[in-house]
């Protein structure tokens, strides 16, 4: 092989190596990118980038509540409850007997709520005596009345409208602490729609509640709370309620025998 032939072979080899190097680099980059995409697929699968996870606390100016427009039956019920209070009775049966308090009471108290969000579900925990809220994000529908025993928190499904989460809840029971801010009460006919929205660079969470129930409200009753984000090292406390101890009753201001039946219904 003369010098020119060797040089040509050498050039071809150089070109081949150069092409090989480029392909290797491209393949490697693609491999890393694919790996990265795969590992973050759980997050990417979220229908929205909005993540409400964290501890959220109400402040003195957080509750924006207007009076509800109640039906005559609901007004009569509220008057009966007021009369009971005037008579010195503790009207919140659920608090006396350590029942689950349920919605909407658990969303409006001073201890923080804790939200944990995954692709399929958003759960809300209260430090009050209550079951957690399960809000399903996986596109399911509400179960039929024969498939689900009504609960104090109801059955919640949600969908995204931009960065807002719209939560729809039915299948409520009348048990627990059913009073609704602004007037009225939760019952088996109640329907709640909530809109979750982050504000101020995720430092605040606004939840707008709209209750509807033809037996309680003349028109849908809307109010909203603005929660403040708590520090990342916040941890949850545990509620403790012992109905066998007289303390909860005395603490709640009882001056006569505790109620032996739920008079809120």
């Amino acid at each position: 092989m003369n010098r020119d032939s060797k040089f040509k072979v050498s050039r071809w080899f150089d070109l081949t190596m150069c092409l090989f190097f480029v392909l290797t680099t491209v393949a490697a980059t693609a491999s890393l990118h694919a790996q990265s995409t795969q590992s973050s697929s759980a997050a990417a699968a979220k229908p929205s980038a909005t993540d409400f996870s964290g501890f959220w606390e109400l402040a003195y100016n957080s509750r924006h509540i207007t009076p509800a427009d109640l039906t005559a039956a609901a007004i009569a019920r509220d008057k009966r409850m007021a009369d009971e209070r005037t008579a010195g009775r503790v009207v919140v049966y659920a608090s006396r007997w350590c029942n689950f308090l349920g919605m909407p009471f658990i969303m409006g108290q001073s201890p923080p709520i804790n939200i944990v969000q995954t692709n399929d579900e958003l759960a809300i925990f209260s430090e009050q005596n209550s079951a957690p809220r399960h809000i399903y994000l996986d596109g399911r529908t509400h179960p039929g009345q024969t498939e689900f025993i009504p609960t104090t928190n109801g059955h919640s499904i949600a969908h995204w409208e931009g960065d807002e989460l719209v939560v729809d809840t039915t299948n409520f029971s009348a048990k627990g602490h059913p009073e609704i801010p602004g007037g009225g009460f939760r019952g088996i006919h109640s329907h709640l729609v909530e809109r979750f929205k982050l504000l101020d660079d995720r430092q605040h969470l606004q939840i707008t509640f709209t209750w509807d129930d033809p037996t309680v409200f003349v028109k849908p009753h809307t109010y909203y709370f603005v929660y403040h984000k708590m520090p990342p090292d916040t941890y949850a406390f545990e509620d403790s309620c012992d109905a066998g101890d007289a303390a909860p009753y005395e603490h709640s201001g009882g001056v006569s025998d505790p109620p032996d039946q739920d008079i809120s219904k």
């Binding site: 049966y93 689950f100 104090t152 066998g244």
Partner: peptide, 14 residues
């Protein structure tokens, strides 16, 4: 199955 709906174990001490 993920379609399971969590229920509430309501307990009344009274």
């Amino acid at each position: 199955p993920r379609s399971y709906n969590a229920e509430e174990d309501f307990c009344d001490s009274n």
